[in-house]
Design a protein around this nucleic acid. Structure first.
Lengths: 177, 177
DNA sequence: GGGTGTTTGATATGGTGGATAACAATTATC
DNA sequence: GATAATTGTTATCCACCATATCAAACACCC
């Protein structure tokens, strides 16, 4: 597994963000002479399972949405641009927890792919109003469908009710912890 | 909050791993003229909440265990060394999802702090048997208590039953997704 | 209206984690 | 005993995160 697109990116595109391959490394299967290690209190550490689960989910996300070459972060930006027209970089970045300096290169990538554009605001000529292009909207629409299949797999794994409860708990932690 | 230990690390210690500060950036409070942005389908994206929750939990972990200067990854290594004596670097690293090359510097850090040691195996003189030192065991014991308080806060937030269910779902995702 | 301070996008830079290739020493295999 | 595989290691690259700083534009305020 792990879908290593090893022989992909050929030319090292000048400025576009390459959406990283994923990890390899054979998931060691405990043989007879070397049984599985004891995780100890790690199995009860919420942060540990959280991280592990997050990595798996992101990995599957990348795999599902690979045809569109979108990372989770890029996808989240497109969603926000679609739902919040007229906002500037600071607003979009900060709601996603992205620092403004780091958001610049990210936008460069999306803009160079023709998915969105920066327009100088007429009210405040410092800020850029971010707008999805038609292509951006089209890509987002296709991405949503691929992501839906990704989420469906999760639904299938843990069940719809559990998924809703899980989502709510995670949101609570993210909000109030 | 966010416990930025800005003025801490004074001398840029030669080789020791500095356990990173944490993010700053004021959690923008929606003022009157700029209401909160719409997250749209992001609120239903499991990966999004997963990532957000994971960051919060790790942040709190770092804060709680700050007196011992242990990162989640380092803590997990200490736990594994304690529970699995006689194992080598490859085994410890791979069960934690750490690539062997990256595990070298990590072990260097722990060893330079006197928390563990590498011993050449007599059976296989290529491999290093990893052992916790007494100091390592002591630090681990103290760390466990600090981590317990960290986990207790989570318990308090979402409730013991929910926490158990959450843990199980995350483990399922990490295992079978 | 002009100085002072702030905000916005941007650049430069450093740190940290993750991933691959390659290597010497050692061991396994045949 | 030659060949292949494994172990720890180094070097290197890329992605992500964080800080300081800057010019342009704006806000304020006397």
């Amino acid at each position: 597994m792990t879908v290593s697109k090893t022989a992909a990116a050929p030319a090292k595109a000048s400025r576009t963000r390459t959406p990283r391959p994923a990890r390899k490394q054979p998931p060691i299967q405990p043989t007879a002479e070397s049984p599985a290690l004891q995780l100890g209190e790690l199995s009860d550490l919420l942060g540990y399972s959280l991280k592990r689960a997050q990595l798996k989910v992101f990995e599957d996300f990348l795999h599902c949405v690979a045809p569109l070459q979108l990372t989770p972060a890029q996808f989240s930006v497109l969603i926000l641009l679609d739902r919040n027209p007229g906002r500037n970089q600071t607003e979009i970045a900060s709601t996603l927890g992205i620092l403004r300096p780091n958001f610049v290169a990210m936008l460069d990538g999306l803009e160079s792919r023709g998915l969105c554009t920066r327009m100088r605001s007429s009210n405040d000529r410092r800020s850029h109003v971010l707008v999805l292009t038609d292509k951006g909207r089209a890509v987002l629409a296709r991405a949503k469908k691929l992501v839906a299949r990704h989420e469906a797999r999760l639904n299938e794994l843990i069940g719809p009710d559990n998924r809703a409860a899980l989502l709510q708990m995670l949101a609570t932690i993210a909000r109030e912890f």
